[in-house]
Design a protein around this nucleic acid. Structure first.
Length: 567
RNA sequence: UCGGGGAUCGUUCAAUUGGCAGGACAUCGGGUUUUGAUCCCGACAAUGGAGGUUCGAGCCCUCCUCCCCGAACCA
């Protein structure tokens, strides 16, 4: 996080910053602010997590506090060390370094001791009923629950049974430890929630040490308290858990003031999904090619697609935080990506759908072959320091199919018979005709060039309405370019039918083979993002130097006009 | 049905805490331009509804409507 990010975000007020100001004024935590990012290692980080990460780290940094990473690993059935590694990696890529890394499993021993304490205080009991029975007894919305027959079990018996559970002497699912709160409570979370369940699975960190595992509720607040967290930020769906969070902490001898939980709305974006379940479905159903498919909103996918981490951070700090369920336009994220890349990326020329262009009056050299020529082009008009490069030019060039039309529609400024346009950084050329196939599709465009316009400017000051990009044919490098579009056609996937897969965009990826690149593009480093002039930003694949992913297209007025004309 | 949370331009976030409703994205129009990009200028456009308190209400009160979350031994 840079100083600028801090300044920019500090300007925006929000209710969380307001709360902290109140706490600072009252001295509730002695002026301390500490947060944590608590992912469960059972999936990959996505753009939604980025919002939470940016918030957690920003709140801590603004207040001279720290933010830790804590793996919330209380469920061995779904968690894996491979996710731990991936999360660490993605977090670092996003640009954040936790002050320390912890695991909920670090606290299993302490949690166990505290559970015995609750039993001793007659605030917890061992229940021998089945999950179904326990669920039935919990009641429903508006209907109170009923007490378990085991609720009045004597303390000594609870202690004895709990120790048996811990010793591995009880079958999986045979009994649980529950907090003794209130089965009639209006908040369902408070109806004697389960604290421990028996699980046979081996834990990726504690192995077979523990036959019992704490639930989220019994672990989370205590982990916060042990680490010295002051402000525990989480998403809205945990609002009802807050009362339980506070209840548990109130029963325990904590080392310091109890942390408290504040909720905020999770990030949702149009035309995509951000729930772990739905993301997983896309991967397992083979809709996309794994978790790193550039069409996914996972952090590793966005990275592969060329989204700068800074643009994601800027986006997150800009959208701020609220309690309103909101779905941001994906266009907003893309505008941050463009702003970032416009400043930072080198300009290059590439022709995606090549059409041969022949300059009929191009000179020959002494041997009778077409003369060779080199043009100088600016690497990045937004940054003079990036300098210039030389690009080979010659008699035969590739231009974009879209940049020539036999019969130009209204407002079309590009090449057509009789028209003069500029080849960017090259010459002014005038179209004299074209070879067509039987369908009328252009096969080859013929032009003459004006030798006095080297560099692209006419000495007589005449103007042309269009500048098009080009790649010299003999030196062109062949490459594959992947064009990406929205993964879903609708703003809210599955809104109509309940199943996002019904709204899949069949054309979310288009692979173009045989694209023509200028030679300098051979030198890009893996992962580098460049601008293909007039087309968009493209990221070199991490493994294949001749595969480019379209990060995002340039804004395109002509495409808009065309679309409008078509109705 | 009960509990919790929410509702401000098309979208989203603000509104100095009761004092001229502002920004960004999107859209539309114009200017600059060797990228129909960038940049610059301009326009459009909102307080869910009904009452009440007040000199004054997006903000306070009452009622209503609509939306989201909650009944895993998931997190």
């Amino acid at each position: 996080m840079t100083e600028n990010d801090l300044d920019a975000s500090a300007l925006k007020s929000n209710y969380i910053r307001d709360l902290i100001a109140v706490d600072t004024a009252s001295g509730r935590f002695g002026g301390k602010v500490q947060t944590r990012f608590p992912p469960e290692p059972n999936g990959f980080l996505h753009i939604g997590h980025a919002k939470a990460i940016c918030l957690d780290f920003a709140i801590a940094a603004e207040n001279h506090g720290v933010c830790n990473l804590r793996f919330d690993d209380t469920n061995p059935a779904t968690e894996d060390v491979s996710y731990v590694d991936a999360i660490v990696e993605d977090l670092a890529w996003l640009g954040f370094e936790p002050a320390a890394t912890f695991h909920s499993s670090d606290y299993f021993e302490q949690l166990y001791d505290w559970a015995e304490l609750l039993i001793t205080k007659n605030l917890a009991y061992v229940d021998d009923q089945s999950p179904d029975l326990i669920a039935d007894q919990r009641g429903g919305f508006g209907q109170p629950g009923v007490d378990s027959p085991f609720r009045s079990r004597p303390i000594t018996e609870n202690l004895e049974l709990f120790r048996k559970m811990r010793a591995g002497e009880c079958a999986e699912g045979s009994r649980v430890l529950r907090a003794k709160i209130d089965m009639q409570h209006e908040n369902m979370q408070m109806r004697d929630p389960v604290m421990y369940r028996i699980r046979g699975e081996s834990h990726y960190r504690t192995g077979g040490d523990w036959p019992i595992y704490p639930t989220y509720d019994w672990a989370h607040g205590q982990g916060d308290a042990i680490e010295g967290v002051t402000h525990s930020l989480c998403t809205l769906e945990f609002s009802d858990n807050r009362e339980l969070y506070d209840w548990y902490l109130a029963q325990l001898p904590l080392p310091g003031p109890a942390p408290y939980q504040t909720e905020f709305a999770r990030l949702e974006l149009t035309h995509t999904v951000t729930s772990k379940r739905q993301l997983k479905e896309l991967v397992t159903a083979g809709v996309v090619d794994g978790w790193e498919d550039p069409r996914l909103p996972t952090l590793r996918a966005l990275r592969r697609r060329g989204y700068p981490a800074s643009s994601i951070r800027d986006f997150c700090s800009f959208i701020g935080v609220a309690r309103t369920n909101a779905r941001h336009d994906i266009e907003l994220l893309e505008s941050f990506v463009r702003t970032d890349l416009n400043r930072s990326s080198l300009r290059r020329m590439a022709v995606l759908r090549p059409l041969k262009l022949v300059i009929t009056n191009w000179p020959t050299d002494t041997s009778g072959a077409p003369a060779s020529d080199f043009r100088t082009l600016t690497n990045n008009p937004e940054n003079e320091g990036d300098g210039t490069r030389t690009v080979p030019f010659g008699k035969e060039l590739w231009i974009e199919h879209d940049d020539f039309k036999m019969e130009p529609p209204p407002k079309y400024f590009r090449l057509s018979p009789g028209r003069e346009v500029r080849l960017r950084g090259g010459y002014l050329i005038t179209c004299t005709g074209a070879l067509l196939d039987d369908d009328g599709t252009p096969l080859e465009v013929h032009c003459t060039y004006d030798p006095l316009t080297a560099g692209g400017a006419a000495p007589d000051g005449r103007k042309v309405k269009a500048t098009i990009h080009w790649v010299e044919a003999k030196t062109a490098v062949d490459a594959t370019v992947a064009l990406y579009d929205r993964l879903f056609t609708t703003k809210v996937p599955g809104d109509a039918t309940g199943n996002p897969l019904d709204d899949l965009n069949e054309h979310s990826r288009e692979l173009l083979e045989g694209c023509k690149l200028e030679p300098a593009l051979r030198e890009t480093v893996p992962g580098e993002v460049v601008q293909f002039e007039r087309l968009g930003y493209f990221a070199t694949d991490a493994d294949d130097p001749l595969l480019f992913h379209r990060t995002v297209g340039l804004r395109d007025e002509w495409a808009k006009l065309e679309k409008r004309a078509k109705g």
